[in-house]
Design a protein around this nucleic acid. Structure first.
Lengths: 345, 345
DNA sequence: ATACAAAATTTACGCGCGTAAATTTTTCAA
DNA sequence: TTGAAAAATTTACGCGCGTAAATTTTGTAT
């Protein structure tokens, strides 16, 4: 091992000179070390030990026919659910040899289109897009998806993108409603104005499941906009409890963040939540938000299959990239959720 | 308004041809519209209405003497505290006319140095770096900071970066200990092995404050590593409670995430937490984590001044960039925290 | 040793843009 | 009107790299 201070070399030209081969050969080497002769490879790798050099990824991607860039867009990183999704997507992209860059729309449709514009000039090989949803600029997104291979994640927007990967809200809501009815009073649904199709699907699935079991569905739609779901759940939960608008002692929230807010409202209102006899309310959520196991009581919820969703999303995108322009049918893939029974319901 | 479909133009050359001026003039225009003659400006802007064109930001930044790029690095976006910090930093950078890109080290020091390498080839005008802390590769970071103007945020690393902006842990811990002693039993400190200097400072500040008030400090250091603070707080909290190792009925946690975990442990162990007479424990945290107002009970904590920290960090970086290489003294700026009294203590 | 195809390398050019230097246009005083 | 300085624009070149085409080297059969 050379103890010599490694000298930094600023570009491929200089490094090629040091290693004694031409620059394009060095370029080939970095693209695929096996594509150069063994003797050449040795010379390059010997130089690599003496001099510190790595190709500038941005310059590389400006000139490649097809970049190794992948854009990841989530609607709101402040939401730990999406932070977790983004993290897993990033990781899988790196595993596949890509260079992911993650963006958050911060809940703003305007910012979402700006990100799309920025991404376009990045010439990504593909994009993993978890759209804001209902408020997203559909036409802009449609134009974008025509230019760059895009896989939609989490929230579906009909006809947009080359594929959609999400989870099966009907399966999970059915599972959840079954469980709640079996173990106690049939649930009412606590929801806010939907930001994306998932919320709508969940409401629909809830109603169907209740019907199927011979119970009257009861949806409590509260007001609120933006991405501060906990605050909405808290504020509106307090109102609902005070005004006695709760139609069941079992409250199924349309997602975990709303449930977390509702739990805090119930606590403040003096309710004890849980499945034990001394409890006056049961509360369940949806998603298995990273912190939902640490609520008081811990939250019963339908766990999205983070692993499968991230894996399959990236795999689908890779296939799409490999297939170039051969635009096949748009496919929608839904993964099953798992019922996670904890203390709250 | 022209209803004509705007034609996309792919590069500055083409657009310059459409507008009837030379490419470099168009380049000047996009750098500063006022730097071209009024008549020329009109011709360009007329073309801009007919054709859709925006300079490729990545190509721009490859050639600029000084980029408009700013890198933002946080240790872990999955932590809503850092997600919030990142969001505010991003916003302020955009306001100042920069192009921020946010990265998360995902709690891995290796990934942190990879991000630093990537950033370097991005040739950013400056970097806002919230380091992982104790495990960060100090020498690598030092080398990086010599090349690009860097402002450290949240976690200080002695002598590294051109400035540090954080919050005053002594002030907040003193405030908190004062309050807790005044209102009940003096607190013990619940902490995990420190990932960064803040935890150490907080312990030190806790001890000093206790001394000053004539109480015996009592630190409960639990085991755990990684960035799943809630899980550590929960697991170790359960142990501590079971084994009766708690030295006070008032538990001051070294951060909110740990407190959230501890709260869930206390709940499971059958404790009621809060300031009312029927409670057996009081729990406080630190940071004012975005969700700490929605715990059960809501968490009493020391709120970091997100606004001031984000604003001052970006302002400091902008000054640094403006001053070019005139390396002045490294400055450390600490903002005061506010005591947020909620239901838990 | 010789010929010839296959593999590897080098030459030459392009990507989309910034910028110093050279040229043109404008401004304004005499 | 003329002249020169000032301002604006254009020319020419470079950034760090990929890649098609041209050239050289290698491997194989004769």
């Amino acid at each position: 091992m050379s103890v010599m201070a490694e000298l930094k070399v600023k570009n491929m030209e200089e490094f090629a000179a040091k290693s004694g081969v031409s620059r394009p050969t060095v370029s080939k080497y970095f693209n695929d070390p096996k594509s150069v002769r063994a003797t050449t490879r040795e010379r390059i790798e010997k130089a690599l030990e003496l001099y510190e050099y790595r190709p500038n990824p941005y310059a590389v991607n400006q000139n490649r026919r097809l970049t190794k860039n992948i854009g990841i867009v989530v609607p709101y990183v402040g939401d730990p659910f999406f932070a977790e999704v983004a993290r897993r997507l990033e990781w899988r992209c790196i595993e596949e040899g890509y260079l992911p860059t993650t963006f958050s729309s911060h809940g703003s449709p305007d910012h979402e289109v700006e990100i799309l514009d920025l991404l376009q000039s990045m010439r990504p090989a593909g994009v993993l897009l978890a759209p804001i949803g209902r408020e997203s600029d559909r036409s802009h997104m449609e134009a974008f998806c025509k230019e760059v291979p895009t896989v939609l994640v989490d929230a579906n927007i009909e006809g947009i993108g080359a594929a959609f990967i999400g989870s099966d809200n009907f399966q999970s809501m059915s599972l959840m409603v079954d469980y709640l009815c079996r173990s106690g009073e049939p649930p009412c649904l606590f929801e806010m104005p939907p930001v994306n199709p998932n919320a709508n699907k969940r409401r629909q699935a809830y109603s169907e499941a209740m019907d199927r079991l011979g119970h009257e569905p009861s949806v409590i739609r509260v007001e609120g906009s933006g991405w501060d779901f906990e605050a909405i759940g808290h504020r509106e939960g307090l109102k609902v409890l005070e005004e006695g608008r709760l139609t069941s002692k079992t409250v199924l929230c349309s997602n975990d963040r709303l449930a977390i807010g509702f739990l805090s409202a119930a606590y403040e209102a003096g309710h004890k939540v849980g499945i034990t006899d001394d409890c006056s309310l049961r509360v369940a959520g949806h998603d298995d938000h990273p912190f939902s196991r640490f609520t008081c009581p811990s939250l019963t919820t339908a766990a999205q299959n983070y692993d499968s969703i991230a894996n399959f999303s990236v795999e689908t995108l890779c296939e799409l990239i490999a297939d170039e322009g051969s635009n096949r049918l748009r496919r929608e893939t839904l993964f099953d959720n798992k019922l996670v029974m904890r203390a709250s319901a």
